[in-house]
Simulated assay, not measured.
Amino acid sequence: MDLVSDVIRSVRVGRVGARLIRPSNSQGLRFPTFAGSGFHIIVEGTCWLVTEDKDPVALMPGDVVLTSSGAAHGLSHAPCAIDDLPPFPAASPAPPIPPTQGPSDFAFLCGTYQLAHGRTPQYLRALPDLIVVSTDHGRPGRPGQHAEMRSLIGLLRAEVSGSRMGTGAALPALIDLVLVHVLRQWHEQGDAGGWPRTDDPAIASALRAIHDNPRRQWTVDLLSDAAGMTRAVFTRRFATTVGQPPMSYLIGWRLGLGARLLRETDATLAAIAREVGYSTEFAFSGAFRREYGVSPTGFRRSPAAFRTGADTFREPAEGDGRAPRARA
């Protein structure tokens, strides 16, 4: 059961963003809670990951911070309280430009999947709020076994640092691959205690049945048969492993698949409804609106473009009283 691949498919319906950020004048930045997932990759200098309720964590070049479900956090040049950091400024989409040179203690690549509708997939919500992995293999006790990740970082930095043909296709693919490698490395480090136990063959069988044939009219009885368990035992173990009851997971999977089909195909609503297990487009539309807060047609028409650019953040002028702004 390849949960990492399923996670990537689920978050692709979000708005993809990528930036190279240099907090200027030794400042850091505070990132408020958002609907989605993202990561920071330290590429220059050193800094600290700060949160609301945990001790600061020192970060070096090659360290990657994954925010699995949009938890609030900050990056700072020194340990501090998260509320002491200026907020990350909202920035409109801009074409990629070379980074502006200026004083900065550190720089990092930022990649995000922002979900305008719906919720972060259950599997990502089951992870710790913030995960730190490293691709720096010069440190003691860290063997060089993730050269692929370092190559991805180089490619991603090149894409956000200059205007190139094909960026619209390259950036989403690179962000997908970075997330895949971060999750792989976290698993290899043995820290995946909160991840659903797909080594449970019975639950994996039920998940595979749902994923392979979402249009089938599944019931708890049919899924428990696929898992080879009694209904009561299956329902209890499924909820413990996956984090929600079987039918709730089934609905979420169907609607997530429907969202991807709305984004990636020109299929009619009736065809998509049948593909994901709904008898009519009206039944699908009602369920979709309840989950995503928008009609399927509205979701299909909403922008799915990514944001790119290399931005330098500056302090407000003396007495300005405003938050730092993005400067193109």
Rank of each mutant, 00 (worst) to 15 (best):
T120N: 02
S5T: 06
P214N: 12
G144P: 08
V11H: 03
S92K: 12
E52P: 03
D176S: 12
R300I: 02
P143H: 06
R307C: 06
V220S: 12
P93Q: 04
I210G: 15
P98Q: 11
L127W: 00
M60C: 08
R157E: 09
T235Q: 12
G319P: 01
G111H: 07
V182D: 13
T312M: 08
G162H: 05
T51L: 05
E318Q: 06
L207D: 11
Q122S: 10
A323W: 01
P23L: 03
F313I: 15
L127P: 09
L257S: 10
A169Q: 09
F234S: 14
A58S: 10
A227S: 12
P143V: 07
A91E: 03
A259P: 06
G190D: 10
L156D: 10
A91F: 15
I8G: 01
A273D: 13
A173L: 12
Y278K: 03
A78P: 02
P196L: 04
P128V: 10
F306A: 15
V294F: 09
A116R: 04
C80K: 06
D311A: 10
E281H: 07
A271E: 15
H146L: 04
A126R: 12
S248Q: 11
P303H: 04
P56L: 08
P201I: 04
V50Q: 06
S134P: 05
H117G: 06
G28C: 11
A239S: 14
A107H: 01
E148W: 00
H73L: 07
P121C: 07
P103Y: 02
M149V: 09
G118S: 03
R22A: 15
T33K: 05
G38D: 04
D2N: 13
L262N: 08
E281F: 02
A147R: 15
Q27E: 14
A158V: 03
H73V: 04
T112M: 11
G28D: 10
A259N: 07
A35E: 11
E52Y: 00
V133G: 15
P93S: 07
T297H: 09
A267V: 02
V178Y: 00
V50I: 10
D63A: 12
G111L: 09
E44Q: 13
T235I: 02
G286E: 12
V220P: 15
A226P: 09
S224Y: 01
S205N: 12
P196Q: 05
I210V: 13
A283C: 01
Y292N: 09
L155Y: 10
P95A: 07
A209F: 00
L85A: 09
R290A: 15
A18G: 13
G144D: 14
R19W: 06
L156Q: 14
L174T: 07
V133W: 00
L261P: 05
D6P: 01
R125V: 02
D221E: 13
R307L: 14
A202E: 12
R184W: 01
Y123D: 11
I251W: 01
R263H: 13
V7T: 07
D176G: 05
A169I: 06
T67N: 10
G45A: 09
